[in-house]
Structure formats: structure tokens, C-alpha cells
Write a protein that binds this DNA or RNA. Structure first.
Lengths: 223, 223
DNA sequence: CTATGGATACTTGTATACAAGTATGTTAGC
DNA sequence: GCTAACATACTTGTATACAAGTATCCATAG
């Protein structure tokens, strides 16, 4: 392999990162066929690390492997997406309750830096940048109450949701509102204002629910 | 391979199931070395399916792979166990709230059958049997509100907790109390008695918290 | 006796070869 | 023209060979 840019500890992780990114960014479309040999030829590596990356992606339900028949990028499963949101709503509400009682100082400064960047990009057309900052904000929230593992589980379960969000990214996300809510949550934590923090977080999480039907109309082949 | 008892779709899943069972049942001890070649020789299969099983176990944090150095059964990580309990407490409370409003009839009958079995075994020394029935009870609860994916996530995150529970299994689990609570939850669902159901579930979930320190004293090498 | 160096065995990572099931397309028979 | 049988190519599953880093042990130098 060429290994032109980032340092990867193994070929496997390199292939995995590349494939996962391509799936999440919808470069590989839902339902599209994906073959071990094609990928290994394309990336100039052997089948073994590609296959091992496939296995991991399969466990994350990003691809479907049919033995001896072929492998396909998973269609977006509406039920799965709804459950991901259910899981996140409940867990993150519990997290913010903890945060409103006690929050790590170091991660508070991280959160403030993150907020500053969000404000910086709010009017730019860098959707992906805002998307990533949004993810980071919530990750910091979990980190500040020492729940790294919980976040990793949510992050994993949200993969299909995030593909949908990518589909609807251009269309009407009210970033200004979301960022304002982030700031309100941050302030509530600093002021230990439980009532306010919980209320804002509830509203914030409720906005996770997307109008899936509408997106399905636009991309019927992806569901 | 011999394939004496159960039908496995692949050698990989056979090896995975066997290893996972051995780790969960503490046949492989926390910290114990485990080697691809040894396992493949022992099971009369090649390294490939063993390696693929290792990868999956590694993702579930049941083993730790150090490249070129060796692989070891994961030590029990207290922080991880505590977070598993945190996740389960919050998710399952949300689940029971749903169940108290509406619950699938078919799974209600499953739950009643499960309860009957629990009562049957309560006085027997079949700890593992009761353990499995307990797991099943909660799985049915999730199934009855159509949250299969949520249960699968909890089940995954509870693996380390369940190893501890296996350690403390002989010692003093008040099964009679737990089964009574199961029955109370079941009745509350049937009667749509939200207040009672939530109260019992809260108490029930609070009993997940084990005295880890005590177990650590008895098995210091496992942590 | 101690410390350092190197040979050796062992570990996981990667590449390749072979196995077995599946889909496709073509040809023979009617 | 249509159907059925078969050959072929292609897919993932499994086995094996090789690569490269690591630990251990032993001999040798001091």
C-alpha cells in the first residue's frame, strides 16, 4: 500500500477507516454492492485486512454480508434509526443531569473552546465542519462526567442516523438555534441550574427526530 | 473440525461462541493468556476463523490484543462495569415506562411462561439456569415494546458485569426477592399501574449495583 | 558474578492459495 | 422460440505461507 497521508497502526485500521468514512459520507450508497477483491485491488492491499475491516463494519450493521453471494452497503433501517434516537434521548438526559451537579473543569474549558468554534462557523457553508463540532460538543458533555464508554456506545448506535442526517444536511438545519441551545446548556452547567439545563436538553434532544418519511420520498432506494 | 453437537453456520461463529462462553463462564480467567495457534490446534481448525473470532471478542472488550506480543483475556474493568450499570438503569427504566402503557400480547404470554419457570427453579441450586431465566425476563420486557436493538446493546455492554456476577453467583443472591419483583413488574404491566411498575423497577435496577470491592478482595488478580 | 549481545522461538499482521456455494450465460434438445 | 442442463466466472469461507516485531534464554565479555 502507499500510505501517503495518515499514520495507521495497521493496514486493517486504514482500510476500515476509509470504508467507514466512505459509507458515512454516502460515497458508497445504501444498497450498493461492495466486494472484498475490488476493494483490495483498489487500495493495493491483500484480501485479509479488507476482509477484517468488512467483519467490523458488518458488526456495526453498516454492511450486510451474504456468504458466497456478496456484500452490500446496508439500507437505512428506519426502525433502527428510531431506536438509536430513543437510546440517545434517554441516556443523554441522564448525562446532563449528572453534568448539572458536577462537571470536570478541564472539559468545561474544552466545551467553551468548542462553542467558540461553533459560533465562528455558524454562518459559513461548512456543514460538515459544524456537524463534527456538534458531535464533539456532545462528546465533551459525556467526557465531563466521566462517561466515555456511554458515549462510544451512542456514537456506534447513531451511525445509521448520521447517514440520514448527511442526506438532509443541506436542507434546513437551523444551526443558529442548535448552537444557542448548546450555549444555554453550557451556561446551565456552569451555574448549576438544573431546571433550565434539563428543559433545554429535552428540547434539544427532541430535535433529533427527523422527518424520515420525507427523506425516504427523496431517496426511496436507500431504505 | 468435529462439529459434534450444534449446527453452526460457520467455523468462525462456532469458535466465537465457544470462546465467548468460556470467557463468560470464567473457564478462561481474566488476565489469562490466549493464543490464536493454541486455540486453532485445540479446536482443529485453522488460524483464520480463530483470528476472526478474536477480532470480534476484542471489539467487545473481552480480550486485549497486543500486536506481535500476545493476547490476554481482559481484566475486569471496574469503571466499565459501573458505566454498564448506569446505561442499563437509565434505558431499562425508560423501557418499563413504555411497557406500562402498552405491551405486546404475545410477549406477555412469554413473560408469564418465563415467570413460571423462575418459580420452578427458585429453590433449586441451578444458579446458571436462574441466571439465564433472569436475562430472558428482561429481554422479553424489551421485546414487548419492540426495542430489540436496545436490548442487544445492553446485553453487549453488560458482558463484564456478568463476569462479576458469575464470580459472586454462589454467594448470596436473593433470588426469591428478585423473582417477586419480576412478578410485580409483570402484574403492573398487565394492570397498567405506572406508579407501582416504576417504583418496583427502580428498586430492582438498584440491586444491579454489586459490592465490587468485596469481590475484588477475593479475586485481586482478576481486576 | 553481572551485564550485554545475539540467536532462537513465538506472537500477531498480511498475503496468497484453495474450497464450496451461487449467479449467469450459453448450448443442446425439443 | 423456449426450457433445461451444464460450464464458467465470481463470491465469501477457510487453510496455509510468509513478514516483522517481541520475549526469552544463553553465551560471552568485562
Amino acid at each position: 500500500m502507499e500510505n501517503n497521508s495518515p499514520q495507521h497502526v495497521s493496514v486493517r485500521s486504514y482500510v476500515y477507516d476509509k470504508l467507514k468514512n466512505d459509507i458515512m459520507k454516502l460515497i458508497y450508497k445504501p444498497g450498493q454492492r461492495i466486494t472484498e477483491n475490488v476493494v483490495s485491488d483498489h487500495l493495493n492491499v491483500s484480501r485479509t485486512p479488507v476482509r477484517e475491516a468488512f467483519l467490523k463494519l458488518s458488526e456495526e450493521r453498516l454492511i450486510e454480508v451474504y456468504p458466497q453471494r456478496g456484500t452490500y452497503v446496508s439500507l437505512i433501517n428506519k426502525k433502527l434509526v428510531e431506536e438509536s434516537v430513543f437510546i440517545r434521548e434517554n441516556l443523554e438526559l441522564a448525562i446532563v443531569k449528572l453534568a448539572l451537579r458536577q462537571f470536570d473543569e478541564y472539559y468545561m474549558s474544552m466545551m467553551e473552546k468548542n462553542l467558540a468554534k461553533q459560533k465562528e462557523y455558524v454562518d459559513s457553508p461548512e456543514y460538515v465542519q459544524l456537524f463534527d463540532l456538534d458531535q464533539e460538543f456532545h462528546e465533551i458533555l459525556f467526557a465531563g462526567v466521566d462517561k466515555f464508554y456511554s458515549w462510544s456506545i451512542i456514537e456506534n448506535s447513531m451511525v445509521n442516523y448520521n447517514r440520514i442526517r448527511m442526506l438532509s444536511l443541506i436542507s434546513s438545519v437551523n444551526w443558529q438555534l442548535l448552537i444557542n441551545q448548546h450555549e444555554e446548556i453550557c451556561n446551565a452547567i456552569k451555574e448549576n441550574d438544573e431546571e433550565k439545563g434539563i428543559a433545554v436538553m429535552k428540547d434539544h434532544l427532541s430535535r433529533l427526530t427527523i422527518d424520515i418519511e420525507k427523506i425516504e420520498e427523496k431517496f426511496p432506494d436507500y431504505f
